[in-house]
Design a protein around this nucleic acid. Structure first.
Lengths: 212, 212
DNA sequence: TAGATTGTTAATCGATTAACAATC
DNA sequence: TAGATTGTTAATCGATTAACAATC
């Protein structure tokens, strides 16, 4: 049996989704919501919502439901959105540029404090009010600023060396767009792998095997 | 109990990963692999690998293991990588551009046949040897070319209208970067949602709640 | 044949759902 | 108080793991 206080990954992965839906409800001006209403909206069961939330405490009120503002604030607190974890991005190619500009880091609990690229041509280029740094400055930068998260927008081949440096410098977590399997090579490192290829293949599978 | 022949989502989502790892083994020149060896490499159990594969048939040989080439080809066949599903991309902003150039569609069972954007300024711009089309041409294009997959790189607000048109025109599946919940609004549409925000929040949660 | 490893059935484990007593 | 809805315990379901007979 899981230890008391243990929270399963399945629950953790639903937190951002609750947070997102509650944000929408807030925007719509909804003040209170019952687990039944929220479940209809999110296409999951009311039971699951109550179970999930009660991993962290009783945020509702019997006979009433949940106060949207309070619940969202509580979940934000649990995730730690206010912490603004220091984050760097490696690889200012197309994808890196897109993420840097497209992405509202503070909204997701992070603060982007540095962008790095191997290409000396890019050095000094301005993206999202940060100027791209040479990779040669990476170690020194990490030693000084102590970023905790790195977003990897580099090819698979260059990933092992870069990860080595970053882990060595104390980076704890990766948002990994390279196809390098970080967690297979480093112990205790937190990773979120984005495999768009896998997503497309899953899509292809489902299209090709529809009603079979 | 699940109907015979039913294959769970958990299994389906592992297929692209098997496919990827087998590709690597191929590159390394490995000819055969046992479920035990593969499981060590992929950090899952040998049991699971054998169970997964046997949803589709017996691809191995007792006492020997699996032939890497054969197994990869079989999985490719199951996914349907050779089909090259006609795919369009909507939204040629930073993200759309990145995906268009960054991404080897044929490698993932798709063929990119059109790029669309609302911005008339972008009309005719060349990306990945395709020229960007105006959104006004979308319906006609779909009617003629019958794309089955759409990659949505547009903001949430414009998504409902675009999805309406696309679903109407026979698009069956979405790789969805907009934060619009397609499957909440359309029945029987296949979707893969990429929520980088959720990934970052999960990362933030894990960093903030490490050893708690 | 002996050894290895699959395919497959059975056991376990964990996550989801249902039920209901507590309580606002 | 009566009605509603939570928090929580118990039941169910499905996915993962273990075990082993089949067989190359």
């Amino acid at each position: 049996m899981p230890a008391k206080g243990y929270i399963s990954n399945s629950v953790i992965r639903r937190l951002p989704r609750y947070y997102r839906f509650l944000g929408e409800l807030q925007k719509e001006g909804t003040l209170k919501i019952s687990s039944a209403e929220l479940s209809a909206r999110m296409k999951l069961t009311a039971s699951q919502i109550r179970q999930d939330l009660n991993c962290y405490g009783g945020f509702g009120q019997q006979g009433y439901g949940y106060n949207v503002d309070v619940l969202r604030r509580e979940i934000g607190e649990i995730i730690g959105v206010k912490k603004k974890i220091k984050t760097i991005l490696i690889g200012a190619g197309n994808l890196g540029k897109a993420i840097t500009s497209y992405f509202d880091f503070p909204k997701y609990g992070c603060e982007l404090i540095g962008i790095f690229d191997v290409d000396p041509q890019l050095e000094g280029a301005e993206i999202a009010s940060l100027s791209v740094c040479s990779m040669t400055k990476l170690t020194a930068f990490c030693g000084e600023k102590k970023p905790e998260i790195a977003v990897l927008c580099i090819p698979k081949d260059s990933a092992p060396a870069v990860c080595e440096i970053l882990v060595e410098s104390g980076v704890k977590a990766f948002l990994n767009f390279s196809h390098y399997d970080i967690n297979l090579h480093f112990e205790g490192i937190i990773t979120e792998n984005v495999h768009m290829g896998d997503s497309l293949l899953t899509l292809a599978y489902n299209v090709n095997n529809k009603d079979k």
